[in-house]
């Protein structure tokens, strides 16, 4: 099992920045982790300040990141979200 499994399991609910081996970067809050994947949920949860965009919103829901693809995980400060 990936060494990241226990790290993530111990830190459910914390905001992170995850970089994968192929250079993808994901931001989110650790939602859950299983033997294969880490699932992030979008940060936010603050008030919706409205406004209208072009269709892009947030960091993607229910994102699963393969544990084997993770290069680094950095924990972000709580004050951020």
């Amino acid at each position: 099992m990936s060494s990241y499994y226990h790290l993530c399991a111990r830190n459910i609910g914390r905001p992170v920045r995850v970089v994968t081996h192929n250079g993808e970067v994901h931001h989110g809050i650790i939602d859950r982790v299983d033997s294969y994947n880490l699932y992030l949920k979008p940060m936010g949860g603050g008030r919706n300040l409205g406004g209208y965009g072009i269709g892009f919103y947030g960091w993607g829901l229910g994102l699963g990141i393969a544990l084997g693809s993770i290069a680094t995980i950095a924990f972000l400060p709580f004050f951020w979200w």
Binding site: M43, G46, W81
Partner: peptide, 20 residues
């Protein structure tokens, strides 16, 4: 009536650069 963090979060959701 909105604080700094709320604005920052909201702008992130819509595509503002996230520092690194």
């Amino acid at each position: 009536g909105v604080n700094t963090m709320e604005i920052q979060q909201h702008l992130y959701q819509f595509g503002l650069f996230i520092p690194h």
